[in-house]
Design a protein around this nucleic acid. Structure first.
Length: 452
RNA sequence: GGCCCCGUCGUCUAAUGGUUAGGACAUGAUCCUUUCACGAUUAAAAUACGGGUUCGAUUCCCGUCGGGGCUGCCA
């Protein structure tokens, strides 16, 4: 593929909030599309709103992409680095007569809008100030033909042909002044500057697209190819937002593996032939034409399950790093990963490396008496004292089973032992725990149970 | 209100003219069993509705209904 035909895509978040999972998904799709097609993936911080943009939000967004492992090609870009271009193109548009200064007050615009809604007309501003001299407090608008019968048509990679009537658009505001562009204008100039060939963005931008196309036309530039991604939805099928709980991607770090989140984000609204996929498989199987049209509800339960699948594949070192618990012994890893759904729950297995605390009443198995439990525990202790751990778990179980054969109740042996070793009513097999902590600690814990 | 997008189990989805409408998550049951988890088996669960086109529609067309997005001198 030669340079001029190479695919270039970007994700362009504005740093006016923490990284939203929807933005993250959009970034993932752009990344996958670029990687699959041998193109470039760029990140551009769309900081045109100087009032609301902050460096903290920018850092959060970038950290999120990094965590997901979607590395951009080339430097991070910023709209604020592109100011001279805005001025240049704005002047060009003003000179060529494609843009003009509009002096209508906000009140006048609101009245116009109200009137249009009452009259069941399309809300738009058709400016009567077009050719007047420039005054203070004005805004730059793109001149559109309100009597045009033409349709602006674009071929969306996901949705096919989409059409909008030009006459319904009105004169679009594009800048507050020569140095302060508005989003619609800034995004077009930034994409020209970048040389973006394809724009993959959320469906919420679909009705902005004809505006952007008009700006490309006024500038005499070809518009890129568009693909509007379906939205990530809350359980009530509205756009996912703060009131639906966690939408900030970085909040997922404490509970989820980045691979699981990447997998989940990539596989929602796009069909793969299996559920658990490596990042290579994600790229290999990605096909923009397989992206769905309808929005998808973000299902935390499925993410939990996917995460548990990834957790099971963790090595001891990876588990310790992911949970930030360095004390986890190698032998305990399988016992934990088999049960763990969220990383933050790993601490619940701390009895595998630390003395448990519990209430003595927990030691009692079903309806059995205190005496029976104590007797069982004592006998268990004696057996363990004379048992050689080298003989292995299976032998260990046989020994315990021979004890329970006397009463015919295995629970009477295993239950008190489990509580003595774990301090919990739900835990892995006490034999497994005994082999993680070793003979000495096993006997110590039985002793301390006996003293209760 | 206007414009646009969308509509298969509760959720994510497969099947683009012919299938007993398949899978996964979640849910119930059973098995395994000393508890939990894992695992295995299994059950219930969907083509929004109405018209067409066709020998035959989940699939194509139209309408209705429903949901969503946009409608800023925010992005």
């Amino acid at each position: 593929m030669n340079k001029s035909s190479q695919i270039k895509v970007r994700v362009a978040p504005s740093p006016t909030g923490l990284l939203h999972v929807g933005t993250a998904q959009s970034a993932v799709f752009n990344y996958l599309f670029a990687r699959k097609n041998g193109g470039e993936f760029h990140v551009r911080i769309e900081d045109t709103d100087e009032e609301r943009s902050t460096k903290e939000f920018e850092k959060d967004i970038l950290a999120g992409f990094e965590w997901l492992g979607i590395r951009p090609d080339g430097q991070i870009r910023r709209s604020s680095d592109n100011k001279q271009n805005y001025r240049k193109f704005l002047e060009q548009l003003l000179e060529s007569g494609h843009a003009f200064w509009c002096g209508h007050s906000k009140e006048e615009l609101e009245d116009e809008n109200k009137r249009q809604i009452e009259n069941k007309e399309a809300p738009r501003h058709v400016c009567g100030h077009r050719d007047e001299e420039r005054k203070e407090g004005q805004v730059i608008r793109l001149k559109t033909d309100s009597s045009s019968t033409r349709e602006i048509v674009f071929n969306d990679l996901i949705r096919g042909e989409v059409r909008f009537r030009e006459s319904l658009l009105g004169d679009i505001s594009i800048a507050r002044n020569l140095d302060s562009p508005l989003y619609h204008f800034a995004v077009v100039i930034d994409d020209i500057e970048l040389g973006a060939t394809h724009i993959l963005r959320g469906e919420d931008h679909i009705s902005n697209t004809p505006k952007h196309i008009l700006i490309y036309e006024a500038l005499g530039r070809p518009a890129p190819t568009y693909a509007h991604l379906p939205l990530l939805l809350a359980p009530d099928r509205s756009k996912l937002s703060k009131r639906h709980g966690i939408v900030s991607l970085n909040e997922y770090k404490k509970d989820y593996l980045s691979d699981a989140v990447l997998n989940y984000l990539a596989a929602i609204s796009h069909s793969y032939d299996k559920d658990v996929l490596s990042s290579e498989e994600l790229i290999e199987g990605f096909d923009i034409s397989k992206v769905h049209k309808s929005g998808a509800v973000f299902d935390i339960k499925k993410l939990n399950w996917l995460n548990s699948q990834y957790v099971k594949m963790l090595t001891p070192d990876e588990l310790r790093a992911a949970t930030k618990i360095s004390e986890i012994p190698d032998a305990a890893v399988a016992l934990i990963t088999e049960r763990l759904e969220k990383l933050s729950e790993a601490g619940e297995y701390d009895y595998l490396w630390r003395e448990p605390e519990y209430d003595k009443s927990l030691l009692i198995w079903k309806d059995s008496s205190v005496d029976a439990v104590l007797k069982s525990l004592k006998e268990t202790k004696e057996l363990i004292e004379s048992f050689n751990y080298e003989d292995g778990k299976e032998r260990f179980r046989k020994v315990l089973d021979s004890l329970s054969e006397k009463t015919g109740d295995r629970g009477l042996v295993y239950w008190p032992l489990r509580v003595a070793l774990s301090g919990k009513q739900k835990s892995p097999d006490p034999v497994d725990i005994a082999f993680v902590i070793g003979k000495e600690k096993t006997l110590e814990r039985i002793d301390s149970a006996l003293r209760k």
